[in-house]
Amino acid sequence: MSDPIIEIKQMNKWFGNFHVLRDINLTVEQGEKTVICGPSGSGKSTLIRCINRLEQHQEGSIRVEGVVLDDSSKGLEEIRSNVGMVFQQFNLFPHLTVLENCVLAPIWVSKMAKAEAEELARKYLERVRIPDQADKYPGQLSGGQQQRVAIARTLCMNPRVVLFDEPTSALDPEMIKEVLDVMVELAHDGMTMLCVTHEMGFARKVADRVIFMDEGEIVEENNPQDFFSNPQNDRTKLFLSQVLQH
């Protein structure tokens, strides 16, 4: 078996005096799909933001493809280019067209030729089913389309793992499905994925493992079937009864 893509050991993080992540241990193998859920404020977004060092942890260690994340910024850009991230608010670059959003990092970070990058971008735009919007600006697209562009933009860097930070939370109900469909397809293609989401249907369908967090701790982790049908911890049961009721 190859090395894990992500290996977090005894990781702790504070925001000022607030202990936001406590003794986190997490290993993600290649091709694994992990869903992280939990109430708001439980630290799940902060956890995945630590993995590409948008947040800095204070104790313990995080390794991404064997490289330790620490204060030396050397190699950080390289790690970030291998770790894709999809944000809740899409964070597309509004001054660039859809195509320009997608080719930016391949050209400027991976030093790819422009024609090659555009070909790649069109391939991924096709895959997220918006090839005909390539020349529009993000502001002209719906939320669901924007999020799919954001996924395509991330895929253009050919990442080893993609982090999803509540990718459907800012979307209208009618658009959630189109984004989830793309994510399901991506999962079936074998992408390593780490998703913070409240979409329990998605977790059931594609996750290899579901992690439940509360108060900055990993409370429970299990395969989706057992996680939903037979939660062990009372806190997990309470959470599931609240999110699954409707």
Binding site: N52, L54, E77, E78, R80, S81, N91, L104, A105, V109
Partner: peptide, 8 residues
Amino acid sequence: EAAAALGL
């Protein structure tokens, strides 16, 4: 953050 996350 989006720029940083892409490796820029």
